Computed example of a mutant assay.
Amino acid sequence: MNLQYGSFFKYPRKAFKHLLSSIYPLIIKLYPLPKIKSIPETIDKILADQCSICRFGDGELLYVSEKRSLPFQKQDTRLRNYFIELLNSDHKHILIGLPVGFYSLSNLKSDSKTTWRAIISWTYPGVRKYLNPSKQYYNASMTRLYMDYQDTSHSSAWFKKVRSIWNKRDILLIEGEKSRLGVGNDLFNNANSIKRALGPAQNAFDQFDNLLNFASQQDKNNLVLLAMGPTAKPLCYELALQGFQAIDIGNLDVEYEWFLRGATEKIKIPGKYTSEAKEGRIVDDVQDEKYKSQIIARFINEN
């Protein structure tokens, strides 16, 4: 599966994906999937109990099971050990999210369904030893509410529900330097205020201690929203242990942008880091004075 990245192996990779997809029924019969709540149930739990959530995608699971570097995060033993600790953690108000493909394949687009069948067939046999079969997991795809679904009639209501998490709250947003969540749309218009701390777009774990030390000194009444790839998981976890409510919101803003545009494929969003879209990691600068005024700290890797 080291052929996952790069255009040279596009067609062999596609054939391999369909092969893996074909053995999915056997894999889940041999290895029953973990207990995961639905997306609405996950959001409702966060709202009802002011929980924090650390969300795992397929990349983080590969990072654990195969010690693989990702395109935007090199392998780091400390980060990987954090992932293993989180997956087995047992804190009442810190939810651990696994992707929607591990919950249900219903209503996913055909290609997304095939992709998740392949991911589970490849990843789950190796990663299941790091999971607790008796643990209740939640849905990491609470931030992916539009693009991968055949029927998107639920998307508007789901976005409205997830936005209610920060209704009239003061937000501390910890994000990659080119993520620019909420800039140019109304995602956070119902929040009371927004402050931003910027970290690196790639290899953000290099700045983990600096980001954690900074955030730890902020008012605990702030709702901490994190969008920093793999590094968001341990940051969210450590801040939640300190008494913050911390939500790893990942791709929510990009999904919202696609929803507002009625996009039918993953397109580049101008001025924002769009890692899953073609040329989406090439990001232009933006001239937005309101956004700039919200930035209170920067922790950027030196080139």
Rank of each mutant, 00 (worst) to 15 (best):
L3C: 07
Q4K: 13
P12V: 00
R13I: 02
R13A: 12
R13M: 09
K14L: 15
K14C: 07
A15G: 06
I23N: 01
I23D: 01
I27H: 03
K29P: 00
L30D: 02
L33A: 05
K37Q: 13
I43Q: 11
K45N: 02
L47A: 15
A48P: 04
C54M: 14
R55A: 12
F56P: 11
L62P: 01
Y63M: 08
Y63G: 11
V64F: 06
S65D: 06
K67E: 14
S69F: 03
Q73T: 05
R78N: 11
L79Q: 13
L79D: 08
L79A: 13
L87T: 08
D90M: 10
K92N: 13
H93L: 14
P99G: 06
P99A: 13
V100T: 12
V100C: 10
S104T: 12
S110D: 14
D111W: 04
S112Y: 09
T115G: 04
N132F: 01
N132P: 01
Q136R: 09
Y138G: 02
N139P: 10
N139A: 10
S141E: 10
S141M: 03
T143I: 06
R144G: 07
L145N: 09
L145W: 04
D148N: 12
D151G: 09
A157D: 13
K160G: 07
V162E: 05
N167V: 02
L173M: 08
I174S: 04
G176W: 08
G176Q: 12
G176S: 12
K178I: 05
V183M: 04
N185V: 02
D186I: 01
S193W: 01
R196E: 07
R196C: 05
P200S: 15
P200K: 05
A201L: 04
Q202I: 12
N203T: 06
F205D: 02
D209A: 11
L212C: 01
F214V: 04
Q217T: 11
K220C: 10
V224Q: 06
G229Q: 03
K233R: 12
P234E: 10
P234I: 05
Y237F: 15
L239K: 00
Q242V: 03
Q245C: 01
I249C: 10
L252M: 08
D253F: 05
V254N: 14
V254F: 06
E255K: 01
Y256G: 00
L260E: 03
R261T: 07
G271V: 00
Y273R: 07
Y273D: 04
A277M: 08
K278H: 13
V283W: 12
Q287M: 09
K290H: 09
S293H: 04
